[in-house]
Design a protein around this nucleic acid. Sequence first.
DNA 1: CGTTCAGTTGACTAAGGTCAATTCCCGTGG
DNA 2: CCACGGGAATTGACCTTAGTCAACTGAACG
Lengths: 190, 190
Amino acid sequence: MHDTLVAHMRQVINLSATDVEIIERLFKPSKLDKGEYFLKEGKVCRHIGFINKGLLRYYINQEGEEKTFSFGYEGCFFTDYESFIPQVPSMQNIEALEQTEILTISYPDLQLFYQSIAGAERFGRVAMEYVFIDTLQDLKSFYADEKQLRYQKFIARYPAIVNRVPQYHIASYIGIKPQSLSRIRKRMAS
Amino acid sequence: MHDTLVAHMRQVINLSATDVEIIERLFKPSKLDKGEYFLKEGKVCRHIGFINKGLLRYYINQEGEEKTFSFGYEGCFFTDYESFIPQVPSMQNIEALEQTEILTISYPDLQLFYQSIAGAERFGRVAMEYVFIDTLQDLKSFYADEKQLRYQKFIARYPAIVNRVPQYHIASYIGIKPQSLSRIRKRMAS
DNA sequence: CGTTCAGTTGACTAAGGTCAATTCCCGTGG
DNA sequence: CCACGGGAATTGACCTTAGTCAACTGAACG
């Protein structure tokens, strides 16, 4: 249950058997059905999660439109950092696109985790660094890349999920309407 | 010289007099003239900096065009995380738009900082969290906001720097050409 | 076999890009 | 003090790309 998570952590810090027991106690297994929400806007995001299996979608509502800005899949940490870190109400939604198995840790338990395990702070920092680098690359791609290139990068980078996500969510992620993505795909095929 | 930096850190962690001495030893003062570079693409970014005074611009070169994606000013930490964290060659440039006074810490000295001061890991994590939240908000604005709204948000959020930055850099930051920004400004005035 | 919803296609519109000319601003040198 | 030069900003005319609205296709499911 916690094997993948522990393996992730061991790439960064050493964990004793006791440490692993602490982790197994603090990170609680949970399931989300397809269409179920991990987080709804207006609520404070009280957990960080780790995806063992499944697929999540992050989006904001803007003028009645859902803007998807990220996906999470096997081996990803996820939370709404904007809400979780300062513990203020969230403006985003996190929805399961498939039945998803996760491990979650609450805000107070995360503080316990940082205090109980040597190097946990370090792991927290490093884990965030990697999420951060990902976000930076995404941001730069959005600034600089043509929409067609963004689509090509998406299918190159996430081959594992491209067929699990409806096309209109991918269009939203790229920053265009489904019709436009359809036209781009047509252009690419010829 | 290190007052502002130390004050910043003290908002997050306790620092003894000895700690402050360590910080003063590890964070080295330096100056950049207007037009001088802190980082050029192709080089590994070997320092994190803190801005005491001045103004920096971050940009990437894409098809002969400079795409500005961020600015740094008084009280900001800065580095190219994508290059600094894994210590690989950078794809971005950091240029001083004004004479800028900075404090910098090298990668090895940062590891020393983390090891020598209790809570330093924590400060590193928290500092990154705030930069990260900023980046997330920026990313979401780019996804979801009209260009005119992006401009309005920019002048609302950075009133201190809007008059210190040439308009064509702001246009680039927003994600449009200088001509388009000029037309948006005209539209807003009427 | 019909309902539903994702995806495609067509016709038209709107926003931003491109190219080029012009104006504005500011520092420098006659 | 004024004229000139150069880069920034503006404006105009036209083009390209994505958005909008609407109709249609196709696969999934009861």
